[in-house]
Design a protein around this nucleic acid. Structure first.
Length: 403
RNA sequence: GGGGGGGCGCCGGAGUAGGAGAGCCGGGCCGGUCUGUAAAAUCGGUGCCUAAGUUGCUGAGUGGGUUCGAUUCCCACCCCCCCCA
């Protein structure tokens, strides 16, 4: 680990069991944790303006080196003053390295792959993973491309993000222990190359997070956590498959999180369902990013205090056609305070962009309220009670007993 | 009044130069899926009776006819659309 305030500082302000409430300081401001990080993969939180995302209270968004490299290209963004300026976002940005995307190219569907729902082997585009990096064909124009540790860091440097993630290989669930072990070791070598490049040519104000791999194997996770923690990184992320079921994921997190250095911010990559967020916060995770809240919104689904419905309400369903109730009673978002389920249902059925926007606002509000509620609960030493209440169906912002 | 085109599933198409398929395309509707976003996406179902059909039932405007066999050919009638008067 390294503690270089010029890049990042992290203060843990309260603890409750393993859960922490903290404050991250980076070049473009502070991030109150635990925090959810909306995805702005291609330079926008789909459907919303940067001002709207800021208006929801978010302090950090995640851009993607892979997507932005292919279009419009990091040079084009650098020429326009960097990603912050390009997308009109003044707060902090973390960029993903692109390893995850390159990986998904090989298998067609990352989600299925991570959960082992598909067999191994290349799916669509050609991808060759070697010690150097990953050679692949662009999905946009078929051109041959290469992405490795140095390329990824160079792209992220050009984008000018506050936090860069090191280039890793995201191992799938179906990979055997042997492959996962070799892959994880290679990811460690890539980590060193990322840091060497960054030390030499990276922006002095850009922080770097390493990524712990190791699949579902405790010993591999331990090796990876030790190796990654020992590097000159500013924060640490957990990546790769966490198992096929939620229980398995909690098990993997259960033995992995305690292996992470306590003084560094911890980012759990790609996780963001309501119950998972609560579980992971309880274990001591500080940062989350996930496609689910925003994607579900575009698919007509609102997050809601419905434990039996996996905390979702599918407003596209016909039963909401004449439901005059608020999407989620008491939710402070625009969709809930001004519109009915019937209206959102109608908009969803018509694939109206207004509906997409409203539900995106809602879901991001909902997740934002959840992490905010969690933080307040941690400060009061009542996180477990808060989590239990929400899991039992309490709204994330309603928790007078906890607050 | 004359000519032409067309009537099947919840809707709209296409097709079958006699061997129906409860088949095709699109839509709608119902249901499933979505965790570092190739996702405003995607998968399945959608006549009836079923727990289940490899051999169940009904079905191509209506009524007849030809034929081993008709959604297709013929006749009459009903309805819709277009053109001409």
């Amino acid at each position: 680990m390294r503690q270089d305030p010029a890049r990042l500082s992290f203060e843990i302000q309260a603890r409750d069991g393993s859960a922490r409430a903290g404050l991250i300081d980076v070049a473009h401001g502070q991030i109150v944790t635990p925090a959810f990080v909306p995805l702005a993969t291609k330079g926008s939180v789909r459907g919303l303006s940067s001002a709207e995302v800021a208006g929801l209270g978010y302090e950090l968004v995640l851009g993607n080196a892979f997507h932005l490299h292919l279009s419009p290209g990091e040079e084009a963004i650098a020429e326009r003053g960097g990603l912050h300026r390009f997308m009109g976002w003044e707060r902090a940005i973390v960029t993903d390295s692109g390893g995850f995307q390159v990986f998904s190219l090989a298998h067609g569907g990352v989600a299925d792959e991570l959960k082992g729902r598909r067999g191994a082997g290349p799916g669509g585009a050609k991808v060759e993973i070697s010690e150097e990096g990953v050679a692949f064909q662009s999905l946009l124009d078929g051109s041959s491309r290469f992405l490795g540790p140095e390329e990824s860091m160079r792209i992220q440097a050009a984008l000018g993000s506050d936090i860069a993630l090191t280039f890793d290989e995201c191992t799938p669930a179906h990979a055997d222990r042997e492959y996962t072990a070799r892959s994880t070791e290679r990811t460690h070598r890539w980590l060193d190359r990322c840091l060497e490049w960054h030390e030499r040519e990276g922006p002095s104000a850009q922080a770097v997070f390493g990524i712990v791999q190791g699949g579902v194997h405790e010993d591999l996770r331990r090796d990876s956590a030790e190796c990654t923690s020992g590097a000159a990184i500013d924060g640490i992320a957990i990546g790769g498959t966490l198992g096929r079921e939620k229980e398995e994921m909690q098990g993997v997190l259960g033995f992995t999180v305690p292996l992470l250095p306590t003084e560094a911010p911890r980012h759990l990559l790609g996780i963001g369902e309501i119950d998972d967020l609560l579980a992971a916060i309880g274990m001591g995770i500080d940062l989350f990013d996930c496609a689910v809240p925003t994607r579900l919104a575009r698919h007509g689904v609102a997050l809601a205090p419905e434990p039996e419905g996996r905390f979702r309400i599918d407003l596209a369903k016909g039963r909401f056609a004449a439901d005059d109730a608020a999407v989620v009673d008491g939710c402070p978002c625009e969709a809930c305070s001004r519109h009915s389920r019937a209206y959102l249902h109608y908009l969803s059925r018509n694939k109206d962009l207004t509906g997409t926007r409203l539900l995106t606002l809602h879901n991001l509000t909902y997740v934002g309220e959840l992490v905010c509620g969690a933080r307040l609960a941690i400060e009061r030493g009542r996180f477990a009670a808060y989590a239990d209440a929400v899991l039992a169906g309490a709204a994330p912002w309603v928790s007078p007993a906890v607050r």
